[in-house]
C-alpha cells in the first residue's frame, strides 16, 4: 500500500514538486527495502530513466561491518527524487556519491537520513549539482548519531554550480548528535569554478570556454573516481551535462 500523499509541511518534502508528483504517486510512492547482513558489501549505480517524473525511495539497513556504496545520477526532466534512509550498525560503512543535473524548469532532489546506530560507523555523502535555466537542485541530508554510536565518522560534502541566474540550489545538512566522541564534517559551497584549476588548464592551451566545460565535467565526474565500473553512469552524466551546459 502506498503511503499517504506528502505535504509541504513535512520538512523532507519542502522543496518537492508535489504537483508533478501527485498523478504518479500511486506508482512511485513505495519505499524499497535493502538489508545487508553483517559483513556484506553492496555497490549500486542508480541511473536516470526517460520519464518526466522519477522517484526512488530506498530504506537501507547495514548490519555490523557491512558496507554500501551508492553512485547516483538524478536528472529528471520534470521532477526527480532520490530518497534514502540508511541505518548503520557497528562498524558499518555507507558512501553516497550523487549528482543533481538539472535543466529548464526541473526540480531534482536528494533527501537522505543517515542513522548511526552502532559504534564506529562511517558515512560519507558527496553531492554535486549543476543547474541551468530555472532548475532547482536540492540536498536535504540529516545525520543522526545515536547515544551509543561513539567514534562515528560522518561526512557531507555538498557543492553546486549554477549556470544561469534563475537556477536555485538548496542545501540543508542537519545533524542530530547524541554521542560525544564523534566526527561530523560538512561543507557546502555554491558557485564558481576553481580559479587555479582554470588557470592551470588555460596555461596548457585550453581556451577559457573549453577549460570551463572540462572542469564542469570534472566537477561531476569526480564523483565516480572510486567506482568499480563507471562507464555507464559516466556516459549518462556527460550527456546530461551537455544538455545542461
Amino acid at each position: 500500500m502506498t503511503a499517504p500523499f506528502p505535504t509541504r509541511k513535512q520538512e523532507e518534502w519542502r522543496y518537492a514538486d508535489l504537483d508533478a508528483l501527485q498523478p504518479v504517486w500511486e506508482q512511485l510512492g513505495d519505499v524499497a527495502t535493502l538489508v545487508l547482513a553483517a559483513g556484506e558489501s553492496l555497490e549500486e549505480m542508480w541511473l536516470p530513466i526517460a520519464d518526466d517524473v522519477q522517484v526512488r525511495r530506498v530504506q537501507l539497513a547495514l548490519g555490523e561491518g557491512a558496507n554500501a556504496r551508492i553512485f547516483a545520477l538524478n536528472n529528471a526532466p520534470v521532477y526527480g527524487r532520490i530518497e534514502l534512509e540508511v541505518s548503520l550498525a557497528e562498524g558499518a560503512e555507507f558512501e553516497l556519491y550523487a549528482a543533481n543535473i538539472g535543466a529548464g524548469l526541473s526540480t531534482n532532489e536528494i533527501v537522505t537520513n543517515v542513522k548511526h546506530v552502532g559504534e564506529g560507523g562511517r558515512s560519507r555523502q558527496v553531492i554535486r549539482s549543476v543547474l541551468n535555466g530555472k532548475a532547482i537542485g536540492s540536498y536535504l541530508g540529516k545525520v543522526e548519531v545515536a547515544r551509543g554510536a561513539q567514534q562515528t565518522d560522518a561526512e557531507q560534502s555538498v557543492k553546486a554550480m549554477l549556470l544561469d541566474r534563475g537556477a536555485t540550489a538548496n542545501c540543508k545538512p542537519e545533524l542530530e548528535i547524541f554521542a560525544d566522541d564523534v566526527k561530523c564534517a560538512h561543507g557546502a559551497t555554491v558557485g564558481e569554478l576553481d580559479a587555479m584549476q582554470l588557470f592551470y588548464a588555460e596555461s596548457r592551451g585550453l581556451d577559457p570556454a573549453s577549460a570551463r566545460a572540462l572542469l564542469l565535467e570534472g566537477f561531476v565526474m569526480g564523483l565516480w573516481d572510486s567506482a568499480g565500473e563507471a562507464d555507464a553512469i559516466g556516459d549518462a552524466a556527460r550527456a546530461a551535462l551537455r544538455r545542461a551546459a
Binding site: Q197, F199, A201, G218, V220
Partner: peptide, 11 residues
C-alpha cells in the same frame, strides 16, 4: 594543481 574527475589523458 589537482583536477578531480578529469583524467590526465583527457586533460
Amino acid at each position: 594543481v589537482e583536477i578531480p574527475g578529469v583524467s590526465y589523458l583527457q586533460f
